[in-house]
Design a protein around this nucleic acid. Structure first.
Lengths: 117, 117
DNA sequence: GGGTTATTCAAGTTGACGCTTGATAAAGCA
DNA sequence: TGCTTTATCAAGCGTCAACTTGAATAACCC
């Protein structure tokens, strides 16, 4: 039986997939103000609580939220360090792009200055 | 005929969905080093060029890349300003969370200092 | 124990993804 | 004009996401 391994790619897949739905982004935004139960989270939406429960499962799978137990509730709380992973990936990509643009600017400046060749 | 409107939610849906696949993230990383054609982008992968073409369509839909025409090729180039939208959303969420943590810290500090009530 | 409350499980529908293969279009080259 | 290259279109297949409704679980309250 293979060891349950999770690659960096799979983690980012789950993370960005979790962010790719407006209901889930809304839930994250609301959790950034503090913990909430499934019932509380489901309250504002037209959909069933079961549907919200499934959204929460996808958020939990991504690591963006974790859950506790309190009486008969399973309160959700944001795990904001995971959001940093998403920003890291994006910034890394943008960094490479910036370096390329810097090189282009340097060459353009050299061309304008020298004008020779 | 309704005007073709795109909400902020829909834009973020398309953006994060586009980022939610490792092949597409890899394509973005490679495009951050410069333009490339579909054939060039498809080269390293085991999948068909048609499959890569569909990944590119999803990236284009999100606004992350744009395309030109040159001879019989349709070169792809990164549109990095769109990546900033993703970071903006995440940072906004984290900002709210930070404020909440600051308030908690303030209250904890006050409790430790005063110790009264 | 019996009834409410909070949540999940299970099954089914609809639609979108991720891929395939085969056909088609359009530009370049002999 | 034909042959090749580049890319898309189109149909089909399997999986998964996003919901639904109904049933089950589990903790609390009388």
């Amino acid at each position: 039986m293979p060891v349950e391994t999770t690659t960096e790619d799979q983690r980012l897949d789950a993370l960005f997939t979790a962010l790719g739905d407006s209901t889930r982004r809304d839930i994250i935004a609301r959790l950034s103000a503090g913990e909430a139960t499934v019932k509380e989270l489901a309250e504002p939406y037209a959909m069933s609580m079961q549907a919200v429960s499934q959204h929460i499962r996808i958020l939990e799978r991504s690591g963006l939220i974790s859950r506790g137990r309190h009486r008969q509730t399973r309160p959700c709380r944001l795990e904001p360090t995971v959001l940093a992973d998403a920003v890291s990936w994006i910034e890394e990509s943008r960094r490479t792009w910036s370096e390329r643009m810097d090189r282009l600017e340097t060459r353009l400046a050299a061309l304008q200055k020298g004008e020779s060749q």
